[in-house]
Design a protein around this nucleic acid. Structure first.
Lengths: 140, 140
DNA sequence: TGCATGTTAATATAATATATAGACACGCCT
DNA sequence: AGGCGTGTCTATATATTATATTAACATGCA
């Protein structure tokens, strides 16, 4: 049904939470999960994806936790969502081998999906964590 | 994972097939299903959605089948995909009651989903069945 | 050494998408 | 009137994916 999944929505909220709270050092998973009302164990699996793509860094041991690796204005949210969703191409075809789909060469719909992907990418690449936080500050 | 589902992809191919083949009268489901390699029974459920939204009309009896209700240039593909997908809003939140989500009022991510929906809508509304067919004719 | 943190792999549960089956309704044609 | 070829409807089965949980482990500071 072409919906951003829970993973993507959570990931964005987690990154926003970090942007607003990691000034004083690493933030524990537990803390974020309570603030954002996300079960800790599920959040773990999201964190591991963000880590793999180096969107966050982690510190173990007491006083450990997670921190952003860049400044909030350097995170286009396309990167965050694409990471958590496993890509944002609207159809599988786009990632397939040329010969995997028998009608690929004559399929009239391929250009639609390519164009749609581009439009989505452009839009989400134009928004940063910082922009979202500032906009939120203005509207309350 | 934010993917157009099989229903949406099939629906678009079915509508393109009709646009290219219904000049001489109704086209039988069986015929389309063979050309498009879609199982007839599954295709039925897609046709019923297209019918409900009056994107096609049907005729029973011998020589019956389906036909477009408008000219191909009068079908923005947003309508077709939205029909088959059950809407194209990228998150459930947008369709929810104001109070259904406890953080709705302060959620920083809502504007992202609203904007994303709009961008998708604008793009797909600008493409018609006719445009796709003509573009296909040019590139082979 | 002990505790509070993060890490990994495996599994369970729930939701949704995809596909199928069977009984029925309609309308042309002979 | 009857039969065949079409579409229609409701229910169900199967497969896939998303969501969440469990348990065992690794690390680092005090």
């Amino acid at each position: 049904m072409m919906r951003i999944s829970t993973k993507g929505r959570y990931a964005l909220r987690i990154m926003l939470d970090l942007a607003q709270n990691d000034d004083l050092g690493p933030v524990a998973l537990r803390e974020i999960s309570e603030r954002q009302n996300i079960t800790p164990k599920y959040m773990e699996s999201i964190m591991s994806m963000l880590l793999r793509d180096k969107l966050v860094q982690s510190l173990r041991g007491k006083a450990g936790g997670y921190q952003l690796t860049r400044k909030p204005e350097e995170y286009p949210i396309y990167e965050i969502l694409s990471c958590a969703e496993g890509g944002l191409a609207p159809v599988h075809c786009l990632a397939m081998e040329e010969n995997e789909c028998p009608i690929r060469r004559t399929c009239l719909t391929i250009p639609v999906w390519e164009g749609l992907h581009q439009v989505i990418k452009d839009y989400l690449s134009g928004i940063t964590l910082k922009a979202l936080i500032e906009q939120g500050a203005n509207c309350v």
